[in-house]
Design a protein around this nucleic acid. Structure first.
Lengths: 331, 331
DNA sequence: TTCACGAATGTAACCGGTTACATGTCGATA
DNA sequence: TATCGACATGTAACCGGTTACATTCGTGAA
C-alpha cells in the first residue's frame, strides 16, 4: 500500500514532483518524469482517492434514491444514470429505499456528510430535513416529482399522457373505462387520474369513481384490482392500468376469468417495459424514455453541483402512445 | 459547512472533546456533553465522512460490478446486496459494466484506489490485472462464477439444476429436446448445457448438437432461437431456455407460429423472474434465491474485508424446479 | 562579471477528523 | 498536609494527497 512519499523516496524526488508528474506531466522535465513513472510502477502505486477527495472537498459521487430496483422501469432509469455518470467521471451510490422516508433521509445525509456531491431522488419526497437552519444540497427530482420541487426536476406530462390513452379507448367506442391507480399520495398517480377524468369529461362521459381501483404498481395489485372490477355486475369494457406491471397482473386475472383481450375487454398499461410487447396480446401502453430520464437527471445534477446556471430547471420528457393488440373496438 | 473546530469554538472546548462527545458520549461529563450537543445543533454540524474514511483508511463502501441492471434477475441480486449492505452500514457503488472488461477493470480500480473496501463481481471474469506485483483486494464472485475463482464465490449448481429440468421433460415423454443457451464463454452456460447432456445420456437419448441454439439471455435472442428451431423439419417437442427472458421471447415466437404451449411444444425457462408466473401459460422454470445471492455475497465480502476466517469460502445456493403449465406430456 | 528571468524542483501548510499522550482537577486516604 | 488515582479535558501528530510559495539552477543579456 505505497503512498506518494514512498514513490518520492524511490525516485529521489519530492512528493510535489510525483504529484505533478501524474497530474501535469508537462511541467516536469522528461528525465524526472521517467524516473517518477518507473518508481510508480515499481511501487505499484495507486493514488488514494479518499485522500484526493478529502483534499479537494469533492467526491465525484452521486447518491441515487430509488424506491425499488426490482421495477423494470426504475432499472432502466438507473441504467441511464450509470451511463451518464460514467461519462462525467462520477460514481453512483445506489440506495434502495423501499420508499421509506427514514431510509431516504439517512442516505441523503451522505451528501450533508460530504460522502457524495448530490442526490437524484426518483420519488416525490424531499429527503432533506425541512429545518430552516440546514442548508440545501444539490439535488434533482426525477420520474415521480414533487408538485413544487425545491430543485430542478424532470418529469413526464402524466396528465396529458393519461388523457391520450383514455381518448384512444374512447375513440374505440368505450364508455365504461375503469382504471387501476398507483399509490394514493403520489402526484404522478393523481396526474394520471386527472388526465383520465379530463378525457371522460371532454367526451361527455359521466365519471364513475368506483371504477377507480387502488394499486401499488405491482402485478399482484393489478391482479387484485382487475378481479375487484370484474366481479361487479356493471363490468367495464376497458381497463387502463397506471403501470405495465399492474396491467400484466390484470391480464393474468382476465384470462383466468375467461375473458378475451381485447374482444371482451380492452387493456392498457403505462411505461412500455420490455415485457409489454411480449404479452399475449402485446400491451397498448405509453412509452417513457426511461434511460433519458436518468441521463438528464445526471446532467442537471452535475450542472447544479458545478454551480452553473441551468437553462430549464424543470424539464418535461416526451411520451408516446403505443397502440398494440390489447386494445380494440368495444365488443 | 461547519467543521469540528467550529463546534469546539462554539462550545468552548477542544476538538477532541467534541469528537468524544459524538463517538463515546459516556467519557465526557454530562455538563460538557450538553454544551457540545447544543453547539453541534447550532452549527448544523455533520461530520465529514470523507475525512473520517481518510483517517480510518476504510470507506465502508462496496463496488458491485453488474453486467446489466435491466435484467430482472440481476436487479433482484442487487436488491439483496443493498439490503445486506445497509444492515452492515456499507454503501453500495453500483457499476454497470455491460460485460466490458475495461469498464470492469476501471471500476475495480476504485478498490485499489481505496475508494471502496471490496468488490462483488457478478460475472465470470477477474477484474483485477493479473500482474504478479499487484496485490489482491477483497472480492467475492457470485452468480456467474469463474471455474477457479481467486476469491470466495457463491454459485448455483447449474449442472444439476439443468439436469433436473431436462429429466422433468424426459419424464413427460419428450425425446426431442432443444436448448437455447447463454453467451458462449460463460461457465454458467457451459454447466447448464452439461446438465442437459447428462440427463439425455442417462436416459439413453442421442444428443443432437444442432438442437442447441446460441443466445444472450435477452427475449430477442429467445425469439430468434425459437424461430431457428421451429423452422427446421425435425422440430423438437420441448424447448429448454437458459433464462426466463429468453423463454418469454421464445414463447412469443411459438404463439406467432401458431403453436400451442404445451400441447404442441413444451417450454421451460430458468431463473423464475417475476413475470414467469404471469406468462400464458405460466412458465416452468428453476427458481434461484436471487436476493439471497446478494446477501451472501455481502456477508462473505465483509468477512474478507475484516480479515475473518470464512467457513465455506465457496457456497452453493439451493435451486428449485418449479413445474407450471408451460410443460406437459408430449402431444 | 553581474544580474534578471524562467524552468524545475523542494518545502510545508492544509483539508477534518481521531486518538495517544499529556495535563489538570478533585476527593479520598495515609 | 502530602500523595495518589480516577476522571475529564487539552494538545498535537497523523492519514495522503495538492499546491502556494520558496529555492535552486542554468542561460543570456548588459
Amino acid at each position: 500500500m505505497s503512498s506518494i512519499r514512498e514513490v518520492a523516496r524511490l525516485a529521489g524526488v519530492s512528493v510535489a514532483t510525483v504529484s505533478r508528474t501524474l497530474k501535469k506531466p508537462d511541467v516536469v522535465s522528461p528525465k524526472t518524469r521517467e524516473r517518477v513513472l518507473a518508481a510508480v510502477d515499481k511501487a505499484d502505486y495507486h493514488p488514494n482517492r479518499t485522500a484526493i477527495q478529502f483534499r479537494a472537498q469533492k467526491t465525484q459521487s452521486l447518491v441515487v434514491l430509488v424506491p425499488t430496483i426490482a421495477n423494470t422501469f426504475y432499472a432502466r432509469v438507473i441504467s441511464g444514470i450509470q451511463q451518464a455518470a460514467q461519462r462525467f467521471g462520477y460514481a453512483v451510490l445506489l440506495c434502495h429505499t423501499q420508499g421509506d422516508e427514514q431510509v431516504e433521509a439517512r442516505y441523503a445525509a451522505l451528501v450533508s456528510a460530504r460522502q457524495a456531491d448530490g442526490v437524484i431522488q426518483l420519488r416525490a419526497h424531499d429527503p432533506f430535513p425541512a429545518t430552516a437552519t440546514s442548508q440545501r444540497w444539490p439535488m434533482v427530482n426525477a420520474c415521480e416529482v414533487l408538485d413544487d420541487p425545491p430543485c430542478p426536476s424532470i418529469r413526464l406530462d402524466n396528465r396529458t399522457a393519461a388523457r391520450e390513452m383514455t381518448e384512444h379507448l374512447i375513440a374505440l367506442g368505450h364508455r365504461h373505462i375503469a382504471m387501476i391507480k398507483g399509490p394514493r399520495r403520489s402526484p404522478l398517480t393523481r396526474d394520471r387520474a386527472d388526465g383520465y377524468r379530463d378525457a371522460l369529461a371532454r367526451a361527455g362521459i359521466t365519471h364513475n369513481p368506483s371504477w377507480i381501483q387502488p394499486g401499488d404498481f405491482t402485478p399482484q395489485s393489478g391482479y387484485a384490482g382487475a378481479r375487484a372490477l370484474i366481479e361487479r355486475t356493471d363490468r367495464p369494457t376497458a381497463l387502463f392500468c397506471e403501470s405495465d406491471e399492474m396491467a400484466i397482473g390484470a391480464l393474468h386475472y382476465l384470462k383466468h376469468a375467461g375473458l378475451r383481450v381485447p374482444h371482451d375487454i380492452s387493456l392498457a398499461g403505462f411505461d412500455d417495459i420490455e415485457f409489454a410487447r411480449y404479452c399475449d396480446p402485446p400491451l397498448t401502453t405509453i412509452s417513457q424514455p426511461a434511460e433519458a430520464f436518468g441521463e438528464a437527471a445526471v446532467e442537471m445534477l452535475i450542472a447544479t453541483i458545478d454551480g452553473q446556471e441551468i437553462d430549464t430547471s424543470h424539464r418535461t420528457m416526451p411520451h408516446r402512445l403505443l397502440i398494440r393488440a390489447s386494445t380494440g373496438p368495444v365488443g
